[in-house]
């Protein structure tokens, strides 16, 4: 297949890191918009009326732990321990799903409390920022699920550790973005 590369880094891994560098700008712009418009909302409800810190702390914790599951899945597939690979991949995807469930609950609760997307400046910036992140989590869950299915079908083993590593890089980046959003949106409310 591919020969050795000039930098010694596999092409796909380098591409994922490059993509992550580009994604920094995507989320950076979204975050900049949220921060600029913080405190400029003119129409109720306001962030402090709605944001539920204890609840979101729990889902944040779940997403953080999914990153641990992810590195354990990578370590497992690297030593070709496929039983453990399946377990950790499945748990990573499951934790991602729990986070998404939490976000679904949060969004529908906000809408129920009178904050649909088009309500005000807060709803616009909040839903588009956290929604973009949620879409990234959803994409990651689908990706991890295909890896899980391939492992179950015996089509993924230690020879494909690089594939798991790259999916993991994406997953951790999504987690890192949430670390920032959790602080900026919820704790600096």
């Amino acid at each position: 297949m591919e020969g050795p590369t000039s930098t010694g880094i596999p092409n796909r891994k380098l591409a994922m890191w490059t993509f992550i560098g580009s994604e920094c700008m995507l989320f950076g712009t979204l975050i900049a918009t949220y921060m600029i418009y913080r405190g400029r909302n003119l129409v109720p409800p306001y962030p402090h009326d709605l944001l539920n810190i204890p609840f979101i702390t729990v889902t944040t914790f779940v997403l953080l732990m999914s990153s641990l599951m992810m590195v354990l899945a990578l370590a497992a597939v690297q030593r070709n321990d496929l039983r453990a690979t399946k377990l950790w991949l499945g748990l990573t995807a499951l934790f991602g799903l729990i986070f998404l469930g939490g976000q679904y609950y949060e969004f529908s609760h906000f809408v129920h409390e009178g904050l649909p997307l088009s309500r005000n400046l807060f709803s616009s910036t909040f839903f588009v920022l956290t929604g973009t992140h949620g879409a990234h989590v959803a994409g990651g869950v689908i990706w991890l699920s295909t890896l899980l299915v391939r492992t179950v079908n015996g089509k993924l083993d230690a020879r494909h550790a690089e594939t798991v590593e790259i999916a993991g890089l994406y997953w951790h980046f999504v987690d890192v973005v949430w670390i920032i959003l959790f602080t900026l949106i919820y704790l600096l409310v």
Partner: peptide, 16 residues
Amino acid sequence: FGTHFFDAAAGADPVL
């Protein structure tokens, strides 16, 4: 979708 990213009446700034 009726959001207000550039809507001065909602407190936003079209200059963004």
